[in-house]
Design a protein around this nucleic acid. Sequence first.
DNA 1: GTGAAAGCGCTAACAA
DNA 2: TTGTTAGCGCTTTCAC
Lengths: 343, 343
Amino acid sequence: MNLKELSEHLGLSQTTVSRALNGYPEVNETTRKRVELAAAEGNYRPNLRAMSLATGRAMAIGHVIPVASKNDVVNPVFAEFVAGASQTYNLYGYELMLTIAESKDEESIYKSLAAKRAVDGVIVHSPMRNDPRLALLNDIGLPFVVHGRVCDSKTDYNWIDMNNRRAFKQATQLLIDLGHEKIALINGQETLSFAWLRRLGYLDALTENNIPEYADLLASSELTETYGYETATNMLASENTPSAFLVSSYIVAIGVRRAISQAGLAIGKDISVIIHDDELSYFHNGGAFPQFTSTRSSVREAGILAAEMLLKQIDDPNLYPQNVLLESHLIMGSSTGPYRKSA
Amino acid sequence: MNLKELSEHLGLSQTTVSRALNGYPEVNETTRKRVELAAAEGNYRPNLRAMSLATGRAMAIGHVIPVASKNDVVNPVFAEFVAGASQTYNLYGYELMLTIAESKDEESIYKSLAAKRAVDGVIVHSPMRNDPRLALLNDIGLPFVVHGRVCDSKTDYNWIDMNNRRAFKQATQLLIDLGHEKIALINGQETLSFAWLRRLGYLDALTENNIPEYADLLASSELTETYGYETATNMLASENTPSAFLVSSYIVAIGVRRAISQAGLAIGKDISVIIHDDELSYFHNGGAFPQFTSTRSSVREAGILAAEMLLKQIDDPNLYPQNVLLESHLIMGSSTGPYRKSA
DNA sequence: GTGAAAGCGCTAACAA
DNA sequence: TTGTTAGCGCTTTCAC
């Protein structure tokens, strides 16, 4: 059923039917009711592509998820973020166009999305400390919201972020309070800003407590199990054996656990492990990890907010720039609890 | 830059330019070259919506990911599957439209996608043993491929699946060979067919080995940490204390581990844990879990194949039905290795 | 080998 | 309050 058929069926012009359905005020209420009824009966929905073509709005938002290489794992955090965004789009009648692409192809993907008029705006994921995508998107004039922050940006832009720096400062402080001094940070790639900010938070706490920073207790790489295993193994065998690990993702933590148990050590007895992972907030329901308090600030919430921000932006470019820093955050203890180092 | 501008710039008609760009044979090769050059220079891409309207093809595929409730976690497996599909769509010029929706809204979402002409086909995720979506999609005439199988379907349909049954039979056999008899299965919701098939595989092995099936060693629910923790805790405190766990997802396994360590037991010493999780294939690189062999059959591969299958179907409806059962599968050992029960 | 013209299904000026 | 008409940017007959 299309507009023409519907209007013929009603004995009205396409215009009137269109106006009735789109809530224009000048339509007679009786007519509107009639039209709405017939539309519902005939299960009529406007053809999205025709509507888009006529209005010039794509009614779609692009999410481009970068992966480092063809075989890279997709970070599960994206799934939650996208779920939140999808919820918002459903509410406002937008579609979500997803592309998962190798980082090197991203530039051409943005250009292509814009040139094809496939989307009205995009969400930028996984920002780097100095991210060339900002300039590109400004250049092609595509509205965007960044999930995270670009540390070295000179210009304003829309972003929403968790307070990674504060979270890692707090986590580190917690370990310090437990008597630890040799605290390892097994971090993500520090070219990505989330990891960089986590590093800064970790260092903040060390500095405030006059604890020296050991370079060999700082690791930074892609978040995989193998990375966690190998890094922890090396650290445990080194001179500066850490008594605590601060781990940037539960995937990595699986490897860290493996290394620890292989070294004959026990978490909660010989060593302490704190995992920080936004996604884990979902595990937390029911007090799964009672050792640490944790505010539930889910990535999904960020997705909802980011999408709303972008739609507002598209609606009214004057709102620019909008920023949200989610102060609530998550510190997740190891399942076996922290090891209190005797002073 | 649109077609009109491009053709005026070239001094040709829109028709010729369109034909040249779309590879029609009747175009003079010299002309084609000229057109292609100018198009590249002007960074011309056809307006997707105009193209769609003219051709009647949306050039987009819908993925509808169901979540049980508003606060349900999105299964990370979807991310990998979708990544694979996205790769295929990029190749063929299709877009991927993602919707994450509560199961109860799904029906209306499919109807809406079809009526709006937003997609040319859909991928059905998380099939149930008896899934009403098949009938619905057949009814509205939207081509689809199911990721998984609908156990009780009378009619044919396109699907691609891992051999969950065989994988769980093998995993169970492995534990039996290690001397275990009281083997717990902590499974997903058995209304979903993947979980049901896993259960059947588990039972296959028990039956073949004349091992009795203990009802209290079979659990089935949504895959969360808390579920794993509570179930394992109860099982460990019961009469039929299991000496081995077979766990249907690494998220659940985190809870199981927690329960085990809280009960004062050690994996690999007092108890054995096998986790099966397709997604974990990505962890496997580098022999992270050397205890078991494992063929790497990633969910991403399934995504690639499913997308190809669907595009073929759209191209030529006569190919129906297409089915792929991925025989390769994954058995992932616990990081601390299996416990060999003394006979 | 190329072009003119109609049409995909909708919205939005402009008229009435 | 409703209808007429043009047009969004492309593809595709049909004619040359």
